[in-house]
Design a protein around this nucleic acid. Structure first.
Length: 409
RNA sequence: GUGGACGUAGCUCAGUCGGUAGAGCCCCGGAUUGUGAUUCCGGUGGUCGCGGGUUCAAUCCCCGUCGUCCACCCCA
């Protein structure tokens, strides 16, 4: 990521941090490198991520380690090892690089970055809804609400899913020859993923297939209705998508995705759901949990696509200090005085000498609104000149105090 | 992993039906010895991704390789 993009990242990062802070979430940080076993046990052995997308290697002790492909498992491990989950409620967030060995394309990189939120110890639909309140508010803060839509589904309990899975496999096995090639392969490995296949013919075939929602018992229905009721009350729009499934094994009940049609093939900008079984699966006490992750690169692309980054953020300089003649030391001193008095201003001192004309051109190109000019005359008089580069206004030669006063206004 | 496109100056790209390359922007100098944005003039800058093959001669044709992009797949 280059300086031309970093301001967009900083804008996104600070907006996300502010929103999460306003919901009283706490930041957690954990390592980039984890034991390979952690991901096999959490994400699922037969998922694509674990089977072919992990950066896995042996360390010097011969232990298999992996660059994290996602944050949830790492977060659970870190919390578990530090006693944050035992009979406790946690609302946490994190941020950082993730690694998946995939073929790069737009919105999909081998090292990419996520914001993640994980909550523990809350079983009701209210905290599920809070995930969507948070993300919905974030889109509003970022000015991209119109570009994203919420897809919502529930996966029920693992027993319900198991029963449905059997019915789906039975139905599709009878019609295997009508399935596309990828779906035929998934029939054996991960049949639920056939539901969100992009193949038109496969989707048509699914219209008469068993419906997951027919397999839900009272608990699942009630939980899902609860989530929907909170969303309705909050005025958050959503689409129920019964074919929305997740690529990671640990999800149950509520799952959701925020998607956009503005980014080409990689349209999911944020996704998450409930994963009540994971903590126990990783050796802890059974703990309800909900969370989500957002793709930073995709959100930055979307912000840029929509021109949603506030003007002025890309400007790096407010004041450019020009030194005429052999007065670099006093010029530095002037710049330091301005920085001390007005720390919010970005003050750049010209370095490298050169002709005055050249320095003025640099001042202009820097994007600064004003240039402070100091030469031998000014040094002798204990003054400096202030020139306004973006407005019709007379250049003035003033004392340092007066210049600071002008800059302040 | 599969398919397609593309790698020429710092950037965006043109070009040579095979005879070792050009524009715009950027940068530097000048018109203008202490005043930028508009002009005008001049200049620097390229083993034409890398390796092999064909040829008198390859940036161009062929093969391989690496990289990038887009889509599939997968997912944030």
């Amino acid at each position: 990521m280059l300086p031309t993009d970093s301001y967009a990242w900083q804008y996104l990062e600070s907006t996300v941090a502010d929103v999460l802070q306003s919901y009283a979430y706490k930041e957690i940080r954990f390592p980039v490198l984890e034991s390979t076993e952690l991901f096999k046990r959490s994400i699922g052995e037969v998922t694509d991520i674990v089977e072919k997308e992990m950066y896995t290697f042996d360390d010097r002790n011969g232990e298999s380690v992996t660059l994290r492909p996602e944050g949830t498992a790492c977060c659970v491990r870190a919390c578990e090892q530090n006693g944050l989950l035992y009979n406790q409620i946690q609302r946490l967030w994190y941020q950082g690089p993730m690694f998946r060995y995939e073929k790069p394309q737009k919105g999909r990189l081998r090292q990419f970055h996520q914001f993640g939120v994980e909550t523990f110890g809350m079983a009701g639909p209210d905290i599920d809804a809070e995930m969507l309140l948070i993300t919905s508010r974030l889109w509003r803060e970022l000015g991209i609400s119109d570009a994203v839509t919420l897809q919502l589904n529930t996966l029920g309990t693992s027993e319900e899913r198991k029963a449905y899975r059997a019915a789906l496999v039975a139905y599709l096995t009878e019609r295997k020859d009508q399935l596309d090639e990828d779906s035929q392969r998934r029939l054996g490995s991960n049949p639920l993923r056939i539901l969100d296949s992009k193949s038109v013919s496969t989707q048509a075939l699914l219209n008469d297939a068993p419906n997951l929602h027919d397999y839900f018992g009272e608990e699942t229905q009630a939980h899902f209705n609860g989530v929907k009721a909170f969303l309705d009350a909050a005025g958050i729009e959503y689409q129920i998508n019964p074919r929305l499934v997740r690529g990671l094994d640990y999800y149950c009940f509520t799952v959701f995705e925020w998607v956009t049609d503005k980014l080409g093939a990689q349209g999911t900008v944020c996704a998450g759901g409930r994963y009540d079984g994971l903590v126990e699966q990783l050796g802890g006490k059974a703990t309800p949990a909900v969370g989500f992750a957002m793709g930073v690169e995709r959100l930055v692309l979307l912000l840029q696509e929509l021109n949603a980054i506030p003007e002025g953020l890309s400007q790096a300089v407010d004041v450019y200090v020009v030194a005429m003649g052999n007065v670099q030391a006093p010029a530095f001193q002037l710049a330091e005085q301005v920085r001390t008095a007005l720390p919010h201003l970005r003050v750049m001192s010209h370095c490298g000498g050169g002709k005055f004309k050249k320095q003025m051109k640099k001042a202009n190109d820097s994007g600064a609104d004003v240039a402070l000019i100091i030469g031998e005359d000014e040094v002798a008089a204990g003054q400096a000149s202030i020139k306004f580069l973006r407005e019709e206004r007379e250049q003035q030669t003033l004392s340092v105090e007066e210049i600071i006063a002008v800059l302040q206004s």
